[in-house]
């Protein structure tokens, strides 16, 4: 059974589909909990701070991006919490997952930006390669 599920989310279509699959994994397992992890990279930091100097306002804005994800989890009555981590998406998720000893990582196959993905290689690909636990990549 997967009890500790790490769900990498950025509010995109793909990450919403990943959310559904993460919920699927929790079915018939009342002990399962989901942790949503949202990575803030330096580019996001820069553009968010430029728009909202206030820390609380920035946090609120980021939470708003995850509202649809959280709605799905609430509807499914799954225990979850949200964590923001800072750094480059791929390595940050890997480090967070490996340090926290999660049972499985659920991640969308693509993020918000297709071009960056093409040039830099997918985050999901990096995570699948370097994480110590099973990774579910949702198409």
């Amino acid at each position: 059974m997967f009890n500790k599920i790490l769900l990498a989310a950025d509010g995109s279509e793909h990450s919403l589909r990943a959310t559904e699959k993460a919920i699927f994994l929790t079915q018939n397992n009342p002990a399962a909990t989901i942790e949503i992890v949202y990575v803030v990279n330096s580019e996001t930091s820069k553009s968010d701070v430029l728009r909202e100097l206030d820390t609380d306002a920035i946090t609120l804005k980021r939470h708003q991006k995850l509202v649809p994800t959280q709605e799905k989890l609430k509807q499914a009555k799954v225990d979850f919490k949200v964590t923001f981590i800072h750094g480059e998406p791929g390595p940050s998720i890997v480090k967070y997952a490996n340090d926290g000893k999660y049972d499985v990582i659920v991640i969308g196959s693509r993020g918000l930006n297709g071009l960056q993905e093409f040039v830099l290689g997918g985050v999901s690909h990096k995570v699948a390669k370097r994480a110590n636990c099973p990774v579910l990549i949702v198409k």
Binding site: S42, S45, K46, D48, V49, L50, L53, T55, H86
Partner: peptide
């Protein structure tokens, strides 16, 4: 101060 706020955010 803008940079400081960005570093604050990046390093939490």
């Amino acid at each position: 101060l803008l940079t400081a706020a960005i570093v604050d955010d990046m390093t939490d």
